[in-house]
Amino acid sequence: MSAPLLEASGLRLSFGAVPALDDVALSIWPGEVVAIVGESGSGKTTLLRVLSGLVRPEAGEVLYRDPAGATHPVQAMGDAALRRLHRTDWGFVHQNPRDGLRLGVSAGGNIGERLMATGARHYGGIRQAAAEWLQRVEIDPARMDALPRTFSGGMQQRLQIARTLVTHPRLVFMDEPTGGLDVSVQARLLDLIRALVADLGLAVLLVTHDIAAARLLAHRLLVMRRGQVVEQGLTDRVLDDPQHEYTQLLVASVLAA
């Protein structure tokens, strides 16, 4: 296997006396889906924000490998470089689509923004790409000029995914992408994400508290508790044969339908 896309080691961060990250290490390879599970307040989202360079850790290092193979420490990158990275090679899907979308801008404009930010200046080309992506995330391209606030929650989330993937990132951070959606919509969204990941060969770092979603999507699983990674391994191994007591509790508490 090739070299990891993102490599983190020794991450530490505390909010006052509360340790949010306690010596966390993590690597993610191209094309791999890694899920981070754990209870609320275990530091999952903080880890995501540190890895994506949005928050600076107190100790530790995050290394990013660019398409040319050179590694860059994310925390030492300038604002401009980090911003460029976030709109080209990386993507971020927020839990609440309202955080990731511009609600006053049409669906087409939302998808086009990333293209225009990376230098696309051909209106027809931008529209064509937007229509293709709307189709890919199962939104009727006829609604391209509609405002996202007229969309349902599931559609907004799919639009956010289209907007993120339009520049063909290699690594996508997803913060509970199915949170706040009802079960049938969740199932469709998970299906869609799974298909897109397989099609595009994306690497995804997925934060979720939904064990079922993690089992469906992830190749590897990290279990976090109180800022520490208490267990990690292949998804099926961790979920079928949990070693740590907290993982056992987590797996046992999943409701069977």
Binding site: S106, R114, M116, R121, I126, D145
Partner: peptide, 19 residues
């Protein structure tokens, strides 16, 4: 301005044409 990130303005022009 510092990052010369003017995609917002292009989004606005895009919206103008779309509408």
């Amino acid at each position: 301005h510092a990052l010369a990130d003017y995609s917002l303005m292009h989004v606005k022009l895009y919206e103008d044409i779309a509408r």
